[in-house]
Amino acid sequence: MNHQPYETWILDGLSGTPVEKEQLNKHLEVCPHCANLQRSWLEAHHQLRSAPITKAPKNFISMWQNNLVLFKEKQKRKQARTLLASFIGGALVALIALSAILLPKFSLISVIVMVTSSVVRFMESVKQIWTLILSLVKVAPTTTLLVIGAMLGGWVLLAVVAWGVSVWKVSVKKVVAK
């Protein structure tokens, strides 16, 4: 049996003419499928209509105020990350462009030689500085060495304390945030 347009009338509503209503009623008397569809739809419609609007929790506004601060911080972090990424990206692009411009002027072997000689020169300078320090230690009187040692030790201790305090602060803040 053809259930159209009755199925549409049942589900989407009649356009309002009495003729349509009469036709639908006549059809419902003879068609169990459409009668069943109408019953079920009326039940579903009743359930939809009778369900209330669920209210937001009582603390929704205070949550919003707290979240707004968090959302803003998150956004700032995201912006900082984006900025950093764009800087790094820009630097990389500039580096690639520079190398594209400069590299053709040098052969691969000359570049390797340049890099190797720079590394060797750097190592030589480190070695020389180390020799100078050792000779100074040998020449300097014991008291001067002790003072320098105490100063260096003090700075190291101060750095360790500062690091420890910052780690402690971060861990305490995390607990408070939770």
Binding site: L11, D12, N36, L37, S40, W41, E43, A44, H45
Partner: peptide, 9 residues
């Protein structure tokens, strides 16, 4: 609507 009615059925 049809799906909901069928589910009720």
């Amino acid at each position: 609507r049809k799906q909901l009615a069928n589910l009720i059925t």
